[in-house]
Computed example of a mutant assay.
Amino acid sequence: MIQVMIVEDDPMVREINSKFLKRVEGFALYKAVSNLDDAKKYVLANKLDLILLDVYLPKENGLDFLKWIRGQEINIDIILITADKSIERIQEAFRYGVVDYLIKPFNFERFKEALLQFKGRYDKFKENDVIEQQDLDKLIASQNTGVSRQEDDFAKGFNKYTYKAIWDEIEKNNGKDFTAEELAEKLGIARVTIRRYLEYMEKENKVDKSVEYGKVGRPQYKYHKFNKIF
């Protein structure tokens, strides 16, 4: 059973997230707190696997707690749950190792998807002492492209939230050429995943790809958004 702590100051949101958690098999709520002092005390005294962490707390910031956990070298995974949509905040969160980022308001299916993707990786690592590169690549790809069973209206094997994040970033590029590597760095998503989505968008005629040959090394693929309305 995966042991979870919720850090959320809003009693109503805390209750909703607690009820959502109970609906996902394999997870157990061990503690729900409203401030970072209580969260730190509980983390230091108990063994936890996952924290559902709000960013905006009264006179506190959940990212400071995330950084504290990393500084203390405490082995706990974190999913951020916040209304903050800024790319800067999202990038910072992924750089400090969050496994997912849920933007309020979200529905149960997105919440469940985040937990099940985490559980898939958690179980895989718990069952094995070592892992081969090809198996690790599949695991990373599945974490970034996992699709909810309820998403029948979207292409199989793709995640609509990941698709939207990538497309929104492309639109912000104002028609300039870009590479998969540049998108991966901005969004904190694996390059192999970015390439899969770009290939799909190319088939949709939303982006075009060209090859740039340098003097040394492999040719570089550059993409740009088609200048038309879709």
Rank of each mutant, 00 (worst) to 15 (best):
Asn35Met: 13
Asn35His: 14
Asp38Thr: 14
Asp38Arg: 11
Lys41Asn: 12
Tyr42Leu: 08
Tyr42Phe: 15
Ala45Ser: 15
Asn46Val: 13
Asp49Phe: 04
Asp49Gln: 08
Ile51Asp: 05
Ile51His: 03
Leu52Met: 09
Asp54Tyr: 00
Pro58Asn: 05
Lys59Ile: 02
Leu63Met: 14
Phe65Met: 13
Trp68Asp: 13
Ile74Lys: 03
Ile74Cys: 04
Ile74Gly: 03
Asn75Phe: 04
Ile78Tyr: 04
Leu80Arg: 00
Ile81Trp: 02
Asp84Val: 11
Lys85His: 11
Ser86Tyr: 04
Ser86Phe: 03
Ser86Met: 10
Glu88Asn: 12
Ile90Gly: 05
Glu92Ile: 10
Phe94Arg: 13
Phe94Ile: 13
Lys104Gln: 14
Lys104Gly: 12
Phe106Ser: 03
Phe108Leu: 11
Arg110Cys: 02
Ala114Arg: 04
Leu115Ala: 09
Gln117Phe: 03
Gln117Met: 10
Phe118Glu: 04
Lys119Cys: 05
Asp123Cys: 01
Lys124Arg: 10
Phe125Ile: 08
Phe125Thr: 00
Glu127Phe: 06
Ile131Met: 15
Glu132Ser: 15
Asp135His: 15
Asp135Trp: 12
Asp137Met: 08
Leu139Val: 12
Ile140Glu: 09
Ile140His: 04
Ala141Thr: 13
Ser142Cys: 01
Asn144Lys: 01
Asn144Cys: 03
Thr145Met: 10
Thr145Ser: 07
Gln150Gly: 05
Ala155Asp: 12
Gly157Lys: 02
Phe158Thr: 05
Tyr161Thr: 09
Thr162Glu: 00
Tyr163Pro: 06
